[in-house]
Computed example of a mutant assay.
Amino acid sequence: MIHLRWLVLGLIALPFLEFATFFFVAGKIGFVGALLAVFLTSFLGIVLLKGGAKLLFAQVMRSGGVVLLSGEAARSGMLTAFAGLLLAIPGFVTDILAVILLVPALRGFLMGRGVVTTGQRPPPPGVVDLEPADWREERRPPAADPRLGPPGKG
Score class of each variant (00 low, 15 high):
Leu87Asp: 04
Leu35Tyr: 05
Ser42Asn: 00
Ala13Leu: 08
Phe57Ile: 06
Gln120Lys: 06
Ala81Pro: 10
Val127Ile: 15
Phe57Cys: 10
Val32His: 03
Leu4Ala: 05
Thr80Ala: 10
Leu130Cys: 09
Leu110Arg: 14
Phe16Tyr: 08
Arg62Lys: 14
Leu86Ala: 03
Ala13Pro: 00
Gly30Ser: 03
Pro122Cys: 01
Pro132Asn: 11
Val127Cys: 04
Leu97Asn: 04
Gly77Gln: 05
Gly64Leu: 06
Leu56His: 10
Leu4Pro: 02
Phe24Gly: 09
Ser42Tyr: 01
Gly126Thr: 15
Arg107Met: 09
Met111Phe: 04
Thr118Cys: 15
Pro142Thr: 14
Gly112Leu: 12
Val93Cys: 10
Leu49His: 02
Ala143Asp: 10
Met61Ala: 10
Lys28Trp: 09
Leu40Glu: 07
Arg62Cys: 14
Gly10His: 05
Phe19Met: 09
Val66Lys: 03
Lys28Gln: 09
Leu86Met: 13
Thr118Asn: 05
Thr94Asn: 02
Asp145Ala: 04
Met61Phe: 13
Pro15Phe: 00
Arg136Cys: 12
Ala81Phe: 00
Gly154Asp: 11
Arg139Lys: 13
Ile12Thr: 01
Asp134Cys: 06
Ser76Leu: 08
Ile89Thr: 14
Gly10Tyr: 02
Pro104Ala: 15
Trp6Gly: 00
Ala81Ser: 07
Leu44Ile: 11
Leu49Ile: 01
